[in-house]
């Protein structure tokens, strides 16, 4: 629907940032409990984003209402990854969620990426796929199968 206004090389980062944002805070904390040293560039901040829709689903934008959002920017401290910056914008008001997502965003730009892909991103993606598939399967079971009764004039 929306035309990509960004180079394709950002797609992997967009994918992991979205995955981290959609994860439940508890699940993310379970997969990645210990945070490496970091310094905040922007401490976790709770705010609101105005969610927009389109008139008729396809037309001019209009303001639908707000949603809560927590954002955070930080820089990894020390070690080989020191200095790498990570960002997070996550739905809700959980500052620990935003911090953890920003740390993982930074680490995903370092040599730790492959390990994190296996240990964190893959399980999150699997959870999400399973959750979506479960809802789609329940919806599919409520799909109406019409059948035509024998009509009077056919007899």
């Amino acid at each position: 629907m929306t035309a990509p206004s960004h180079p394709p090389e950002t797609a992997p980062r967009q994918a992991w940032m979205g995955l981290l944002a959609r994860a439940t805070p508890a699940r993310l904390a379970g997969l990645f409990p210990d945070l490496p040293a970091h310094d905040f560039l922007r401490a976790p901040e709770v705010g609101a984003v105005m969610v927009r829709g389109r008139i008729g689903g396809v037309g001019q934008p209009f303001n639908l209402g707000e949603m809560t959002l927590t954002r955070c920017s930080l820089r990894l401290a020390g070690g080989v990854a020191g200095g790498v910056v990570g960002h997070a914008h996550v739905q809700g008001r959980d500052k620990a969620h935003a911090t953890r997502a920003a740390v993982i965003d930074a680490l995903m730009q370092t040599g730790a990426a492959d390990g994190l892909r296996v240990a964190v991103l893959a399980p999150l993606a699997a959870d999400e796929t399973a959750r979506r598939a479960a809802r789609a399967a329940k919806a599919a079971a409520t799909r109406v199968e019409f059948f035509t009764l024998v009509r009077g004039e056919d007899q």
């Binding site: 629907m1 901040e45 609101a48 984003v49 105005m50 969610v51 829709g53 639908l64 809802r135 919806a139």
Partner: peptide, 23 residues
């Protein structure tokens, strides 16, 4: 409560054609 929240931006218009429909 919402009046206490800083406005951190406006979303892109949501794509309802790509909705994961349950109904």
């Amino acid at each position: 409560y919402r009046t206490t929240l800083p406005r951190l931006g406006a979303s892109r218009p949501v794509a309802t054609a790509q909705m994961a429909v349950i109904r």
